[in-house]
């Protein structure tokens, strides 16, 4: 049942993306999405698929909120007449250890207010982050660990 609803949703997306709303195209999209769902059926039946989907969505929402906030913060900083900068590079101890998760975390960090990931250590234990405001590093570390890192762990573990 869930598979049927999903393929219907995917078929509608297919019609939207290809841009021709004919019945033929809808049926073709439905067949295509059923086929692709059949290919990934093993992954689908893994535990808590829907819960995981919800968490990935919440990660996405968090990401866009942070992106908007960070652009705004940079804008305020740059247009303020006296820029009070304390930039620096600090080390962030990683809890996630898979390459994919580290990549995602580094990307998210780059798009959050005032931080930019620079490098990851050889043994994948440390992420080096350039921050535009290094006055309270402990707070920044805590924010990353309890915000993005926890959400990534929830979504992909």
């Amino acid at each position: 049942m869930i598979t049927f609803i999903l393929s219907l949703v995917f078929a509608v997306i297919w019609v939207a993306v290809t841009g021709s709303a004919t019945p033929h195209n809808l049926i073709f999209g439905f067949a295509l999405s059923t086929l692709s769902l059949w290919i990934v059926r093993g992954e689908m039946n893994a535990r808590g698929y829907w819960r995981r989907l919800g968490r990935i969505l919440s990660l996405l929402i968090l990401f866009f909120r942070e992106l908007a906030l960070s652009a705004w913060k940079v804008a305020v900083l740059v247009t303020s007449p006296r820029m009070d900068l304390k930039p620096g590079i600090f080390a962030f101890p990683l809890t996630v250890d898979r390459d994919f998760e580290i990549t995602l975390l580094a990307n998210l960090i780059t798009l959050t207010p005032g931080t930019l990931s620079v490098d990851v250590s050889e043994d994948r234990r440390m992420l080096f982050v350039h921050a535009i405001d290094c006055s309270d590093i402990e707070a920044t570390r805590r924010d990353i660990a309890q915000g993005f890192e926890r959400k990534i762990m929830e979504a992909f573990r």
């Binding site: 900068l85 304390k86 930039p87 620096g88 590079i89 600090f90 080390a91 620079v118 490098d119 250590s121 440390m126 080096f128 290094c134 006055s135």
Partner: peptide, 12 residues
Amino acid sequence: SSHSTRDELKDY
């Protein structure tokens, strides 16, 4: 830049 407070990557 000279404003920078720290560089832990370099220390590492």
